[in-house]
């Protein structure tokens, strides 16, 4: 049986232990045990306010936890912040980051000085790919234009760890597509661990290797993408009148005699369980990562 909330095996790029942050007594994130294997492309999904951005800031050491710890490549962020951050590229959710009265070229120049691994010719190439207007001030740029500058800043440093917070937010469809392709090419060229938070999982569902689902500040699921796809199946069933069950479905849809259950676990065992409850299984199908995460989030809502 595949567990939907796993401690992923190492070596780990990111490992948090009971990481907890409260603001005015309210939990922003609660007891996170985040595990990101080295080389993974890990997607964090969840509704607004579920703690995704706080988690990314925690990895970066931008917030200090009330409880728990955060380790990046084996080093505790609270004692080795500068060392850790030199290996991280970050595209923040808020585009107000940085000095808005700077021109893009000046911003890139300042940023490049912070990274020993900065690749000038790669930065030039990325600026062309993302059509960055180097002479323009950040404050006179649109949201999408600034996002593109941030993408160049994060990628050209060729960091060991990339943290992307809604990286395609505000980009038009063509640039979004270009950004995804550029990310794939980047992963192919340079060994990088990526943690990406996004509302658009369908955009990256063949790119991500691991999935973390967040709800109300907690990590409710964490496992490999293939485990999620093979371990969470959709069963179409016919049920007798007054049917009750102990199947423990993640999600139940449908009314009357036909129901669709989304259930985690071994297919044969689940089918046996459904049949012994008196229902008849008419179809079993795989679901997309997008549907899987929606099911997990809906399921957590009903708890």
């Amino acid at each position: 049986m595949i567990s939907l909330l796993q401690q992923l095996p190492g070596p780990l790029a990111v490992e948090s232990e009971l990481f907890t942050k409260t603001y005015r007594g309210k939990h922003a994130v609660k007891s996170l045990n985040l595990t990101v294997p080295v080389g993974a492309t890990y997607v964090l999904v969840g509704p607004n306010g579920s703690g995704k951005s706080t988690t990314l800031k925690g990895i970066l050491g931008l917030i200090v936890p009330n409880k728990g710890s955060m380790r990046v490549f084996g080093r505790d962020i609270s004692t080795a912040e500068a060392l850790v951050r030199a290996n991280i590229g970050y595209v923040p959710e808020s585009i107000d980051w940085g000095n808005p009265s700077l021109r893009a070229d000046k911003m890139l120049e300042l940023h490049s000085a912070l990274y020993r691994s900065w690749d000038h010719s790669y930065a030039d190439k990325l600026c062309r790919v993302f059509d960055v207007q180097l002479g323009k001030k950040l404050k006179s740029m649109s949201k999408g234009e600034r996002r593109r500058v941030h993408l160049v800043m994060a990628l050209a440093a060729k960091p060991q760890l990339l943290l992307l917070d809604e990286p395609t937010d505000g980009l038009d469809p063509l640039v979004r597509d270009e950004a995804i392709r550029t990310l794939v090419e980047h992963i192919a060229l340079y060994p990088t661990t990526v943690v990406i938070s996004t509302h658009r999982i369908e955009e990256v569902q063949n790119i991500v290797t691991h999935v973390g689902v967040m709800s109300k500040g907690s990590l409710i699921s964490q496992l490999s993408a293939e485990d999620l796809r093979s371990g969470l199946l959709r069963y179409t069933i016919n049920v007798p009148e007054g049917w009750t069950n102990d199947i423990n479905a993640v999600r139940t849809e449908g009314i009357g005699s036909q129901r669709i259950l989304t259930v985690s676990g071994n297919k044969r065992e689940v089918v046996n369980k459904i049949e012994s409850s008196g229902a008849e299984v008419t179809d079993v199908s795989s679901i997309s990562l997008f549907d899987a995460t929606v099911s997990l989030l809906r399921g957590s809502k009903n708890d």
Partner: peptide, 8 residues
């Protein structure tokens, strides 16, 4: 990988 937008 780039053409298919799949992890390399």
């Amino acid at each position: 990988a780039v053409d298919l937008k799949v992890n390399p």
